[in-house]
């Protein structure tokens, strides 16, 4: 069984919801990324999402666009991200999924990517610009090697699309909480609960919710209706603000802990 599935089984038995923080690999630097991952784990992360930078981040808001630019300046590439996780595996067994736009993976070679990722003990991938319709090659290889392919459902997804996406997704299903790009919002969308119930009608797979969740309160409230809460921009923004602060790791760890405590308060 894949580490992601194991984690969700464990959490389900405990009646708990997963906390999934996102950071962009190589922001502020490649040497700090592993330390940040370990700090997030200590802070209560169940799974870590590592962003692979791409020059055209068209699903992202300003905060992650900024992180992407910094990572690209640091010459971060998909192969460096894979190598980084391989090294990191000496220190942690936390499930790790990559979040990458499709072109870096396409260019790397889809089959080769899955093989190398599995070899580096990466557990799965989220590709925001790859709908299931175009994912057959990826899917086939991923099934063979028990590599999770996490597809996204959005508030605009129609029923036939939800059916397709839930069928293609392994690990969990990523529900995009809003119509828009990544980034913090003042308020949660009122449609989250209803839409998650709709998705549940088609699948028993765990459902994670991301986009627009940035505070402890928002994280806790979202946790009440789903199986995993994904927080990206709020963490990335805090990293950016403190990138020259020697207490960076402490600050990020502390923020993760706060989010995690909120999420773990919820019992199913």
């Amino acid at each position: 069984m894949n580490r992601i599935d194991e984690r969700f089984v464990k959490l389900r038995n405990e009646g708990k919801v997963a906390f999934i923080p996102f950071i962009t690999c190589g922001d502020p630097s490649l040497s700090l990324t592993p330390k940040l991952v370990l700090e997030l784990e200590k802070g209560g992360a169940d799974i870590v999402e590592l962003g692979v930078p791409f020059s055209e981040p068209l699903a992202d808001g300003k905060v992650i666009q900024g992180a992407t630019e910094r990572a690209l300046k640091n010459k971060v590439t998909l192969s460096k991200v894979i190598d980084l996780v391989k090294d990191l595996r000496k220190e942690t067994d936390i499930p790790i999924v990559l979040l990458s736009y499709y072109n870096p993976i396409y260019r790397y070679g889809i089959v080769r990517f899955v093989e190398d990722a599995v070899r580096a003990s990466i557990d799965g991938v989220i590709i925001p610009d790859l709908p299931p319709e175009e994912a057959d090659i990826l899917k086939e290889k991923a099934m063979e090697l028990d590599f999770a392919t996490i597809f996204l459902v959005s508030p605009t997804s129609t029923e036939h699309r939800i059916k397709l996406i839930t069928r293609y997704s392994t690990g969990f299903i990523y529900y995009v909480s809003l119509e828009g790009t990544t980034g913090m919002r003042e308020r949660l969308e009122e449609t989250i609960q209803y839409n998650i119930e709709t998705i549940r009608a088609f699948t028993n797979k765990p459902i994670g919710v991301g986009f627009g969740i940035g505070t402890e309160d928002q994280a806790r409230r979202v946790a009440e209706v789903c199986d995993a809460v994904i927080v990206g921009s709020a963490i990335v923004s805090l990293i950016d603000k403190n990138k020259d602060n020697e207490k960076l790791l402490e600050i990020i760890g502390g923020f993760a802990r706060k989010l995690s405590i909120g999420i773990k308060k919820v019992r199913k």
Binding site: Y102, P128, E134
Partner: peptide, 22 residues
């Protein structure tokens, strides 16, 4: 699917965020 097929490859398709797929 919006594919211009050529042998076992193609050009075109639909590679966008789910929000605009429908």
């Amino acid at each position: 699917k919006g594919h211009f097929n050529l042998d076992d490859t193609f050009f075109g398709g639909r590679f966008v965020p789910e929000t605009v797929m429908s």
